[in-house]
């Protein structure tokens, strides 16, 4: 209480200069908002409004006979127990556990090799590993669809050797084939993120390590990897989000393997099928919302677990 009075008195005493300062501050504030408005408008129009709209949609159920009825959280309850949706989420969780560590390990390895300065033509190699990321996902999936297919090089080779051709898109193999495509496409991107983090490590650390007699592997293990930890966590979280939103690759391979990759293969594909094949836009909106919540939870768990490990040190 006394503090407030003191503050008020002080404010009263310094009234004149304060007003001028307020004016410049207000001008600056207005300018700041003016700069932010274009973003804010797009953000509202392209993200917030569609989000609110699909949230609104998800509270209804539309039927071909009977039309639109309000069902409250009915769609959410249905989705939480929908075996097709849950199977898709579990499939992606498995994908996450298998594919993401492999991809990030490869990215880290390539980044360390590039950073070691022991490679010839490092720029060429860097570009070579990065290029798949620049290939549009649609083109990549079509290309792999051909490579995996009946007239692709692997089958042709098998045919030539008169051994049974491998079925890359069978019930047991399709998921791994998709993992391969995603890894191929994203190793370069993650490598660049980790590599640029490596470049910002102060070189004095390396000199000190050398003085202490540490070899290249020891330097990598004890200095480089701990130093780029935030970058690795960042790529891990991006990968979590990317995995649960997997859509392009399965959607395009669906035409080649329609009986394996069904409309509910990934949660995102399921939402798409619901909306555009089954005319259940409202249920699709609810499924999308639950998927978003799943992604938030898993991302948070990943972040939390790495933080806890950090604190434990």
């Amino acid at each position: 209480m006394s503090e407030t009075i003191a503050a008020t008195t002080a404010a009263r005493n310094a009234k004149a200069p304060r007003r001028r300062r307020n004016e410049t501050k207000r001008k600056q504030t207005i300018a700041a908002y003016a700069f932010v408005i274009p973003f804010l408008l797009l953000f509202l129009l392209m993200l917030v409004v569609p989000l609110v709209y699909s949230g609104y949609l998800s509270l209804f159920r539309s039927q071909l006979i009977g039309g639109l009825t309000f069902v409250g959280l009915g769609n959410f309850i249905q989705a939480a127990t929908d075996p097709l949706f849950l199977a898709g989420v579990l499939r992606m969780a498995f994908f996450l556990v298998v594919q993401v560590p492999i991809m990030l390990a490869l990215s880290l390895l390539f980044a360390l090799l590039l950073d070691s300065g022991r490679l010839r033509f490092p720029r060429l190699i860097r570009l070579g590993i990065f290029i798949p990321y620049a290939v549009p996902g649609v083109v990549a999936a079509l290309m792999w669809g051909y490579l995996y297919g009946d007239f692709g090089p692997f089958s042709q080779l098998a045919h030539f050797l008169t051994i049974p051709a491998p079925n890359f898109l069978g019930a047991g193999t399709a998921l791994y084939s998709i993992m391969n495509i995603v890894t191929w496409g994203w190793v370069g991107y993650n490598m660049i993120v980790i590599y640029s983090a490596l470049r910002s490590i102060p070189t004095e650390l390396y000199d000190a390590a050398e003085m202490d007699g540490a070899g290249a592997i020891r330097v990598a293990w004890s200095i480089k990897i701990p130093a780029v930890r935030p970058a690795i966590i960042l790529t891990a979280i991006f990968s979590v989000i990317g995995t649960f939103q997997l859509f392009n690759e399965p959607k395009l391979l669906q035409s080649v393997a329609p009986n394996v990759i069904d409309g509910a293969y990934t949660p995102n594909l399921y939402a798409y099928t619901l909306a555009f094949t089954d005319h259940e836009v409202n249920y699709a909106a609810a499924v999308s919302f639950i998927l978003g919540i799943v992604i938030m939870i898993v991302s948070y768990v990943v972040q939390l677990s790495t933080q806890r490990r950090e604190r434990a040190k």
Binding site: G145, Y146, G149, D150, F151, G152, S255, V256, A257, P258
Partner: peptide
């Protein structure tokens, strides 16, 4: 029982 209207189906018809 290959899926139709795919690249390998076209090649199957041609080959």
């Amino acid at each position: 029982t290959d899926p139709d209207f795919t690249d390998s189906w076209y090649q199957g018809l041609a080959s």
